[in-house]
Amino acid sequence: MVEGGRRGGGGGQELERAPTRVDADPEERVLTGLMEGFPSSLSEAKRVRPGLLRARIKREDLYDSCRLLRESLGFEHMSMISAVDYPDRFEVVYHVSSYQNNMTLELITTTPKDDPKVDSVSDIWGGANWQEREAYDLMGITFEGHPKLERILMLKDTLYHPLRKDFRG
């Protein structure tokens, strides 16, 4: 039996919370930070419910805004990358989470149908690596700058992207 092996909390440090001023709640600060950084390409930035924000960004500024989120606004964790095939466009939806501020930001970017390409954020968050590969594999979105953009779930020699709406099996 190891000392301290028994239960009882077992240590683990509290996450340090971001320094907050009384007049600035973290969600407001993230929204203003994004709007000041990217005034022309950010739109529809709003709070959906407590703990969930939503914003749209043009794809040219996606990488820079993600870097801002990671380095200045305290978003440590890329939760989920989803690609959606709409009739007139592809949407790539990034759910980015902040442990210290306890919130999630839904960052939506669109790409045209004939040029499904966005910048890779896998060097900002390591957790984005495989999720971008999955989006490439199943939806055919190209992530520029990804270290290894290969198929991951389907076979290597598959010729189609099965989650596209025009795919007929």
Partner: peptide, 12 residues
């Protein structure tokens, strides 16, 4: 879209 936790964990 389904986010599987172990899919990201095993990528590490």
């Amino acid at each position: 879209k389904i986010r599987s936790p172990i899919f990201v964990t095993v990528s590490a």
